[in-house]
Design a protein around this nucleic acid. Sequence first.
DNA 1: TACAGTAAGGTAAACGTTTACGTAATCCGC
DNA 2: GCGGATTACGTAAACGTTTACCTTACTGTA
Lengths: 324, 324
Amino acid sequence: MKPTIKDIAAKSGFSIATVSRVLGNKTGSYSEKTQIKILKVAKELGYRKNSVAVDLVKKRSDVIALIINATPTNFSTQIIDGIQQRASELGQGVIILYAGNRDNGLQHKAIITALERSVTGILLAAIEPDEQDLALLKASRIPYCFVSLYLGTRDILAVSSDNRDLAYQATQYLIDRGHTRISLVGIDGYHTGSQRQAGYRDAMAANQLTAADILSGDYSYESGVKLLQQVHDQGVTAVIAASDMVAAGLLTAAQQQGLTIPRDLSIMSIDGTIICQITTPALTSVTQDFYRIGSQSVNKVMGQPAEDFIPVVITERASVAVQK
Amino acid sequence: MKPTIKDIAAKSGFSIATVSRVLGNKTGSYSEKTQIKILKVAKELGYRKNSVAVDLVKKRSDVIALIINATPTNFSTQIIDGIQQRASELGQGVIILYAGNRDNGLQHKAIITALERSVTGILLAAIEPDEQDLALLKASRIPYCFVSLYLGTRDILAVSSDNRDLAYQATQYLIDRGHTRISLVGIDGYHTGSQRQAGYRDAMAANQLTAADILSGDYSYESGVKLLQQVHDQGVTAVIAASDMVAAGLLTAAQQQGLTIPRDLSIMSIDGTIICQITTPALTSVTQDFYRIGSQSVNKVMGQPAEDFIPVVITERASVAVQK
DNA sequence: TACAGTAAGGTAAACGTTTACGTAATCCGC
DNA sequence: GCGGATTACGTAAACGTTTACCTTACTGTA
């Protein structure tokens, strides 16, 4: 049987209250001798506190739940790093709940799990909530914040890049380099997706250019591979990929078709993870600051001042050519 | 205030015992009318069970803790998928605890967190435990299993590829294609690393070839980039990379030096994740079955029959040339 | 001497469940 | 119409902590 404070109390001759106090460092209500003795007994017994009991009586967990989906995207580690770092500065642990791959059932289950565990806050990374999810979250009294997803209203806590601006910048970057036929590829119609679509369309319109049809996909490598043909058919000279993975898919598919990047097609990627360095040529990207997105979202959920939108930056590599 | 079963009991006119029974589906000890009424009241009140209290009285969690480190490697999603899937089949939830990047402090903290939460089992993915970690784990009464890491003894539960065999196969594959000067790059001296070193050396010896010096690193992209020069200096014709990331680093560094892969240098990678498809040329790899490693480790920790070593497979892509 | 104040520690309630045990009512067979 | 099962519930203890509230003994001060 795992030893409890009761065992320590019995063996040390003090009451459980005193034991609890020294173990919890509630200084000022016990003598040094007592402290030493109790600590010694605790160590002898191999005592380890039962957090479950603590949480029950304290009615909270000092734990932030991070719900994350499994889209084989690769920025999650950076987000997690940021969250972990900031959380631990604020004395919070982090547990990660996995919501499968755009699986509404698992998503819902993950939220319920978090709710049932009376965590301090819930972070939802790259999760598109459905009505039910939102209702659940709202009904609970615990704070939640979307990470890397902006639902279009300030009423719901969120930290992300400004996706409209991000796509606008990407588009403008290509236009500035002489491209006029540009398409946007591998994107969906949910919040992030439609915000980026808007940015792309606005930038095209602002330059008196006509936007191409959006080629929709799911941000994955496979999407990129599959959509290359359609990109080719559109006859564009440059493409904005919805993610590094899409960009990588486009790139390999293009090379298999005998195209030379960027001579035959310029590719601008969105994300700027390490994937961009791995490909040949390296991918020019609009780079998001995922670490900061993560750390700021912890601030948000803990009620501290935090930024809503984290600036992006364009990282020039080798996948965009100047169009004459 | 969050409603409790006490509130439901009061409002429905039954005792908390009965409420608990219908909510817990302990069939056979209440009438259908009772069930309907209680369920209705519960819904009205927006009742949600407090798992913390449940865990306390039941003295267990129905949760498996997965401790994972943040090495920016990319196979973790596959492992997590396998774990999640199998765990949910066995009625277990999964919480992921993040152990930083080879950070012994965080690692230790993560283990303690798991221990304090009376989880059903602990899975340690790609974690090299130190003495303290091991002592902690052993002292607890809860089962643990290393994932994708074999500590060299059957006394400690583990599921992984057979790393010696894996490296042997990789080496033999290159030898079979005419390479005689081969080196092993980006690897460390811990368990996985030294097992692979042994496999490499054994294969070389078995073919009367002399092994090159091992070029050590930490499985990262940066390691690969940094070590390319030394590979070049060794004058080998083929190289085995410790991971896909190392392979990718070697590849881009080589291309920057003006080398053509695989004409000037053959690269054999270890892991076989999607990274191998993204690079140009695509990387030939010995591919691990991470999903299966994950799911089998759940079996292990749940006391079910499970495999110790999951077979690997060689996936031919385009980064290895035949040496005449 | 008396009294307030303080240091050190004990008592017991509370957190929200589950479940062993008890009990009253109903049912069944004969 | 009696005894034993069974059904449908209630009572209360237990899980391992924290903490509000007491108690006791001592210290210092007037």
